[in-house]
Amino acid sequence: MARLESNIPLAAQIAEQLRRRIASGEFPVGTKLPTEFQLAQDFGVSRNSVREGVRALVHTGMVRARAGDGTYVTAADALTPALRRRTTTERAVHVEEVRRLLEREGARLAALRATPEQRAALRDAQEARLAARSGAEYMAADLTFHHVLLEASGNPLLCDLYRGTGGIEESVHRVTPTDTTYERFAARRGELDAAHEAVVNAVETGDEEAAARAALHSVLLSEALPSVEPSAEPGADPVR
């Protein structure tokens, strides 16, 4: 049974303990929290106290209640949803500038700190990018590449900031064509692939300045790609 203090409101204590358990990975993002009944038994409190505690986490954006289904974890901390809310009201150019800074510094630190396992994972992600034969495969590999790169920085706060500002997700979703038009996109992405290869090479050799330059170059190239037109007429080329 979880231990609660007597001088702090129960709902606040429950919210804090659940926040810590989510942050520790006990309840990963995407998973469903135990039921109110199960949590009430765990904490030794009423279901009303659990409901209030969970509601506090809903307000932070860490969890989301689905009517008739349960409550799901949507973020590992309160920072990520707070930043996401801010980026939706901020000018796009300001968000892009922050992402460039984070990616560039993340790559520089990765060149200094990446473990052999992380270097291997980054190389594997790049190979998967090159081998992608559909929009879905390319998107998954590219997201993995950038997540591995930032994790290799060894700075968890930098990773949280990166995720909170949308990371590379928005860019990947914006420019990756559907599978029916992917071949035309793949034929034109050579410079982007080369920029990612330069990032991997710099991280593998520990060249922090080269890693920073290559990462910034890859982001700028991605930003320069035209958006996919979801309503394009059949046969139209969505990548101009």
Rank of each mutant, 00 (worst) to 15 (best):
N155H: 13
S6A: 14
E208I: 11
R213I: 09
E183S: 13
E36A: 13
E233G: 12
A82E: 14
V148L: 11
G164K: 00
G61C: 05
T205Q: 09
V200C: 03
V93G: 07
T89W: 15
S227W: 02
A202C: 09
I22F: 10
T60M: 09
R174N: 05
F27Y: 05
F185A: 01
T165F: 06
T35V: 09
S227Q: 13
N7C: 07
S24G: 09
L102M: 13
L33S: 00
D207H: 10
H146Q: 10
V50I: 14
G190Q: 10
V73S: 00
R100Q: 07
S153G: 12
T180E: 13
D77M: 11
T89F: 14
F185H: 01
R19D: 04
N155L: 01
R100K: 14
I168A: 04
D160P: 04
P230D: 08
R99K: 12
Y138F: 13
L10H: 11
V54M: 03
S134E: 03
T80L: 08
L220S: 12
T181H: 07
T89V: 15
T88K: 08
L33K: 05
A198G: 07
V73Y: 02
S171P: 00
S222T: 15
E229H: 07
V95D: 04
G30W: 02
D142P: 00
P28F: 02
T31G: 04
L158G: 07
A198T: 10
V148N: 05
A194K: 12
H217G: 07
R3L: 14
L112Q: 13
L109E: 10
A65Q: 09
L216P: 05
S6R: 14
L109D: 07
L143Y: 08
V172W: 02
E16C: 04
E26F: 02
G154I: 11
V63M: 02
L101D: 08
R188F: 07
V29I: 12
I168F: 06
P116I: 07
D42F: 15
E204Q: 11
V175M: 04
L225N: 05
A136S: 14
H94W: 12
S218A: 14
A212D: 03
G70Q: 07
G235Y: 11
V73M: 04
P34E: 01
G106I: 09
D42A: 05
G25R: 06
G44N: 00
E183T: 04
T80P: 01
M62F: 02
N155M: 04
L39F: 00
T80A: 15
R86L: 15
N201L: 15
